[in-house]
Amino acid sequence: MKKLSWLIGVVALIASGAYLFVYIYRWEWHRALLVGILFLATLVGLCTALVLRRVTSMDERLRSTAGNQRPAGALERLRAAPVETQPFRWLSPESLDRTHIFIPVLLGGGFVVSGIAWLIERVAGSSARAGVEEQLATDLQGIAFPVTSLVPTDAELLAGADDCADDPSLRVLLGPAATRAVR
C-alpha cells in the first residue's frame, strides 16, 4: 500500500510537471496555473512524506540502539527510592521570604477577616435592636401630636365668650385652646 501511494505520488508529480510545461508552451495560462498548483501540492506532499519517513527511520534506529543500553529494573529502583512527602511546601520556613506565599496568605487572611466581620455584624445586630427601638420611641414622643384638639369646638367657643370669660374654673375646664381662641 505504501509503495502504491509513493507510485501514485511520483506519477502525479511527473505528469503535472510535464503538463505545466505543455500548457505554458500552448499559451494556456489558466490551465497552466491549475496544473502548477497541483504540481506544487504534490511536491510538498512528497517532500513531507520523505522527511517523515526519514524521521521515522531515525527514531526506530535510535530506539533499537539505545534501548539495549538502558539498565533494567527502573520500576524497582523507583519503588526503592525514599519518598519525599512534604505537604504545604509553601508554608515551610525557608519559603516564607519568597513571593509565592503571598497569594495563599492573602487568600487565607481575607477568608479569616471576612469570617470575623460576619460574626461582629451578627452580634451587633442582635444586641443593638432592643436599645435602638426604645430610643426611637422616646424621640418620636417629642414630636407626637397633642392629645387635646388644637382647634376649639363651637361649644367651647360659646362657653368662653365674654359672659363667662372671667370664670377661672371654667377656663381650667375648657383648657388653653378655648382660652387662646377667645383672646
Partner: peptide, 12 residues
C-alpha cells in the same frame, strides 16, 4: 497566432 490559439483553447 500561438497566443490567440492558446487563449481560445484555454479555460478562460
Amino acid at each position: 497566432r500561438r497566443e490567440l490559439r492558446g487563449c481560445l483553447s484555454d479555460t478562460r
